[in-house]
């Protein structure tokens, strides 16, 4: 595992306390897990994602991510309908390790309340919670 200073936390996304991030994209939000989360999990071997069309509340689990010896639930940073799922992760779960904010994204959500985005932490606050 790396030191916090070695990890990457872009400013153009917002973070949840469960280490998911969300990024606005037109009227949708792209969702994934942070560099910290992927580093804690280690080599990711499987990502279980919901079917497109699922409606999931903020804070409810939308899937799970697995390393060889651990499973972590994934929690919605903001509620809404899942309109797209990153199918590339099926054959290439390692993308979550190598590009957590890029090709390792997980779902795109049409939010019930776009205002929920503002309730998520910005980079500065998230870093502060990580450093405890």
């Amino acid at each position: 595992m790396k030191e916090i200073s070695e990890l990457n936390f872009p400013e153009n996304v917002r973070y949840s306390k469960d280490h998911e991030w969300a990024r606005p994209e037109k009227d949708l939000f792209v969702v994934g897990i942070s560099d910290y989360a992927q580093d804690q999990l280690g080599d990711i071997v499987y990502v279980d994602l919901p079917a497109a069309g699922s409606k999931i509340k903020k804070g409810a689990d939308f899937g799970s991510v697995e390393s060889v010896k651990a499973v972590s639930e994934l929690y919605m940073p903001l509620g809404g309908a899942v309109v797209a799922v990153n199918t590339q992760l099926g054959d290439n779960p390692e993308l979550v390790n190598s590009a957590p904010y890029g090709n390792g994204w997980m779902i795109k959500v049409k939010p019930d309340d776009p205002g929920e985005y503002q309730q998520l932490m910005d980079q500065k606050r998230y870093l502060a919670t990580l450093k405890g």
Binding site: V45, Y46, E66, V68, P93
Partner: peptide, 9 residues
């Protein structure tokens, strides 16, 4: 040591 990551992926 064996590559358990590839085995699971």
């Amino acid at each position: 040591r064996l590559d358990e990551v590839t085995a699971a992926r």
